[in-house]
Design a protein around this nucleic acid. Structure first.
Lengths: 337, 337
DNA sequence: CTGAAAGCGCTTACAG
DNA sequence: CTGAAAGCGCTTACAG
């Protein structure tokens, strides 16, 4: 692999000059010299060593992202947005999965720090674990001290700048929609207990019930884990409990897919017997039958905005945290009680 | 950020020694010295600068992966497998999306090379473009020369070591399945023309027809692009063409989802009026209604095997290329003609 | 078992 | 506009 000095030798200039023209420095360089350098670089097939550059500048030009599960469509869409915006800003994106595990998430954060990523973007709902939270806080304080920038695309927990979907409000409007359809016995399949987003969506559910003048009853709440299997299992519990549930709200679309699948297996018709609603509006939500009613979050945009915010912070700007509204999308899985 | 020398100073030893204990070198170090170093590192919250280490060792300990689209469930599953195996081997995974675009794919490859990733793993079906192919070949030759390792989880094109799904055979068994059900007028929705995988699956389709003694007729072949919308559009064309198609084979499951959606919109029942089959067996294949018949490729395993092969190559071993068989999964979307 | 020294491939004040 | 020099934070023969 040709290095800067190889180019310098061939072009008959100093490495400094080569660096200046090849790294696009603002330092002025004679046009003819530039030409010579560029030609030499091309002839030798020069590819800058970004590790060396990063070491010299203490900037890696990479944005680090932590996701819960890269194969989950939610994160797939968010990552796509992140990547788009990163590319547009000439950054690279380094994605790590945590599997919603505190230990692994911390390890991933440290790994990204060791690779000196310029920004850390948390895409998932924070892990609710005091010991983890405090450790993470310390680590991130270190990270900021070394010039790192932190943004969060989920409920606050790190006191970072954030772009947060309206989990609470989104769930409320789903409940309101069902209440307006005449449902009074509404079940809920929650997300994993240790995830902040789950908690907030569940609170949104309760608030929705209250707003509709419906009683709260914890027997109507089953626990899922943001997976299809978890949704199916919880749906089974809900219908076996003989509570005469006429509607089920799922904490996310993936969970709702499990609910739909399980109800279908049991011969329970949706929406004639039971209405079902999800949250997020991932692509498949409109491809299953019945098409899933859900609260839409613009996931790719969320990602794009997140990467943009990181870049803005790195550029010394002070972007403001925002809440991204969720929008009710009524499809075929909800109907009159 | 504390550096090696900071630790050295605090522990009262040389940086060399610190490096040896903290980087897990095989070089012997006195146990008490080790203790002192480790304590000092902990006290100063040391996090090694992996850019510097990479520069010094010319090993980054990261595996680079090129995917077509990170938000496509196919790649989501493969990446999950890659990540698992990478983590198990103490590597990191750096994923880049190409959007099936030759220019972008080349740019991503060069970027990964500039970051000095230890391996390059191509997960998608190669882009069929002579000029791109030859450029890529040159670039990869450079890459290998600098010690890089290349593996491909798709049809051969780079002469790299590879783990390749049986695209041809998988499509054949799907056609055979339909033929056994009595279908004689079978349509096909192909993938994007410039992708090698598309071509091979299409050839598999033709071979399947021939094996079943069915005539080949290009009017039965519509062109999709591995997207839901593309599948829907192609399905529309196929049924509008009044060819009395009784079955449609899609080049992948995503495409099949579009086919199912379009047929449903047109009031065409599956499988009563038309049978539909896909390829890959992504998770949602079993969640839509009717459940999708497809040829299953173990995607996460494919990813795992790919990362393992890369690591084996890096360890100086000579793993053999393998073909991963596809397995017919019969569900509800196919029935008697 | 330990350390001094050179080197990995860049960048960037500093001097001219 | 150009270059020599120092430095980024590690690793690793080499010598002891």
């Amino acid at each position: 692999m040709a290095s800067l000095s190889d180019i310098a030798r061939r072009a008959g200039v100093s490495p400094s000059t080569v660096s200046r023209v090849l790294a696009g420095s603002s330092h002025p360089v004679n046009v003819e010299t530039q030409d010579r350098v560029i030609r030499a670089a091309r002839e030798l097939n020069f590819r800058p060593n970004l590790l060396a550059r990063g070491l010299a500048t203490s900037r890696s030009n990479v944005l680090g992202a932590i996701v819960h599960d890269i194969s989950d469509p939610y994160f797939g869409a968010v990552v796509r947005g992140l990547e788009e915006s990163a590319r547009a800003g000439n950054y690279h994106l380094f994605v790590c999965g945590s599997d919603r595990d505190a230990v692994r998430e911390l390890a991933q954060v440290e790994a990204l720090m060791s690779r000196r990523v310029d920004a850390l973007i948390f895409t998932g709902g924070g892990i609710d674990d005091p010991s983890y939270q405090s450790k993470l806080r310390h680590v991130l304080a270190d990270y900021r001290r070394q010039g790192g920038v932190v943004v969060q695309l989920a409920p606050a927990a790190l006191a970072a700048r954030r772009i947060e979907p309206d989990n609470h409000g989104g769930t409320e409007i789903v409940v309101q929609h069902l209440a307006e359809l005449g449902h009074r016995r509404i079940g809920y399949v929650a997300g994993p207990k240790h995830i902040r987003t789950s908690t907030i969506r569940l609170e949104g559910f309760r608030a929705g019930l209250a707003a509709a003048g419906l009683p709260a009853d914890d027997r109507f709440i089953a626990c899922g884990d943001f997976s299809v299997a978890g949704g199916a299992k919880a749906a089974g519990e809900l219908v076996s409990a003989r509570l005469d549930v006429t509607a089920i709200v799922a904490a996310n679309d993936i969970t709702a897919l499990g609910v739909l699948d399980e109800l279908d297996r049991r011969g329970i018709r949706v929406p004639e017997d039971v209405s079902v609603a999800g949250f997020d509006d991932i692509e498949v939500a409109s491809l299953v039958r019945p098409r899933l009613t859900t609260a839409r979050i613009p996931l790719a945009e969320l990602g794009r905005a997140g990467a943009e915010m990181a870049q803005a912070l790195l550029a010394g700007k002070r972007p403001r945290s925002v809440v991204v509204p969720a929008k009710l999308v009524v499809r075929d899985s909800t109907g009159p009680a």
